[in-house]
Amino acid sequence: MSRLFEDSLVFLCRPDHPLVGCARVDVADLARDALVGFPPGFGLRSVVDEAFHSVGLEVPTQHELTLGFPEIAELVRRGVGSAIVPDSESRRMPGLHRIELAEPVLWRAYLASRPSKEIGRATARLAEIIMSSPGTVHHGDEARAG
């Protein structure tokens, strides 16, 4: 298994949210917020669930959708709730405010495959292309990134 990338999660809210003045926010401070996010079973949702469980809380996700980050951002803009999203995605969401989490929470994605000697040339080439993509954590970087 090879790590493709990792991204810090941030709290995303409207500019009129009470926490906007904070430089960082604790996950526990978000327990009363109505969150917009993915349903249980999605990789990112599992990371968010674990962040809340690690401080003894249940996730306050009240609005679950299986679409994508642009739709989550639109619901946050409309005042449906706030969200916890990857930092790289938050920077593509104009008009919303991002706040770092006090205790870093990382979303990591991996490429899992059989050993190269057990896969076909096309599959091996695809894995090679994916692993050489910009933003991919390279094997020498993995010790520093993990």
Rank of each mutant, 00 (worst) to 15 (best):
L19M: 08
G21K: 05
V25P: 04
D26Y: 09
A28N: 06
A28D: 10
D29C: 06
L30E: 04
D33M: 13
D33E: 15
L35C: 03
V36T: 07
V36Q: 02
G37E: 10
G37C: 03
F38S: 00
F38Q: 05
F38A: 03
P39A: 04
P39V: 05
P40M: 06
P40L: 11
G41R: 02
G41Y: 14
G41P: 06
F42Y: 13
G43P: 11
G43K: 09
G43I: 10
G43Y: 12
L44T: 06
L44W: 06
L44G: 05
L44I: 11
R45C: 06
R45N: 10
V47G: 01
V47Q: 04
V48S: 02
D49Q: 14
E50F: 14
E50W: 15
E50G: 02
H53I: 09
S54G: 03
S54F: 08
V55W: 11
G56S: 12
G56R: 11
E58I: 13
E58G: 14
P60L: 11
P60G: 03
T61V: 14
T61W: 00
Q62L: 15
L65Q: 12
L65G: 06
T66G: 07
T66W: 10
L67V: 09
G68A: 13
P70M: 10
E71A: 06
E71H: 05
A73F: 12
A73S: 09
L75W: 11
V76F: 04
G79T: 10
G81P: 03
G81W: 03
A83N: 10
D87H: 14
D87S: 03
E89V: 11
R91T: 03
R91N: 01
R92T: 07
M93I: 05
M93K: 00
P94E: 13
L96W: 02
L96R: 00
L96P: 00
L96D: 00
L96H: 00
H97Q: 10
H97S: 10
R98K: 07
I99S: 00
I99Y: 01
E100N: 10
E100D: 15
L101R: 02
A102H: 06
A102L: 12
E103F: 02
E103D: 11
E103H: 11
E103T: 15
P104A: 08
P104M: 07
P104E: 09
V105R: 01
L106Y: 12
L106F: 15
W107S: 07
R108Y: 07
A109L: 15
A109R: 09
A109V: 15
Y110M: 12
Y110F: 14
Y110N: 09
Y110K: 12
L111Y: 04
A112T: 15
S113M: 13
R114L: 13
R114I: 11
